[in-house]
Design a protein around this nucleic acid. Structure first.
Length: 150
DNA sequence: GCCAACGTTGGC
DNA sequence: GCCAACGTTGGC
């Protein structure tokens, strides 16, 4: 079982939205490294949901991989913002897993708090200038962050 | 295949 | 609103 972290702008899609919807297709990711991480997710993996461009920015809850990645439908929507003319049904370029809601933290664990924890210093999330929106997290990091939420 | 220009991300 | 980081695009 593996652990991950995904970023989302809560004004676009928040942990509360996931709680309401119960599950969602994690679509519209258009970065190859992030996509590779989405494809590597296995059913049952746990995913920290990070709110970016927010006040405060930070980890807001946990999702679980409900369905492993399949072709992201938004790449085929010709009129859509996420249409990719180079993607075909035979050779899709972008993939999305389904996530199910697991937990919304009683408070957001801010990036400032995360930076104070020495054990988390190596996280890709905290690297200066990191823009990666889907990244692996170690079991120890996952445990440390979920413990901070209590 | 190089690399400058440009666009986006996202913390602050 | 600023700006650093860095991915993408396109001319050559």
């Amino acid at each position: 079982m593996a652990y991950w972290l995904v970023k989302t702008e809560p004004e676009v899609y928040s942990i509360e939205d996931l709680k309401k919807e119960k599950s969602t297709c994690w679509d519209c990711v258009r970065n190859y490294e992030a996509r590779n991480n989405l494809v590597a997710m296995k059913k049952g993996d746990e995913v920290l949901v990070y709110h970016s461009n927010s006040e405060p920015s930070g980890v807001a809850g946990v999702a679980v991989v409900k369905k492993e990645a399949y072709p992201d439908p938004t790449q085929f929507v010709r009129a859509g913002e996420y249409f990719d003319p180079k993607a075909t049904k035979e050779q899709p370029r972008w993939f999305s897993p389904d996530f199910a809601f697991r937990d919304a933290f009683p408070r957001v664990i801010s990036i400032g708090e995360l930076r104070e924890v020495k054990a988390l210093a190596e996280m890709a999330l905290l690297r200066r200038g990191s823009r990666l929106s889907v990244m692996p997290v170690t079991a120890a990091e996952f445990r440390a962050i979920t413990a901070m939420a209590k």
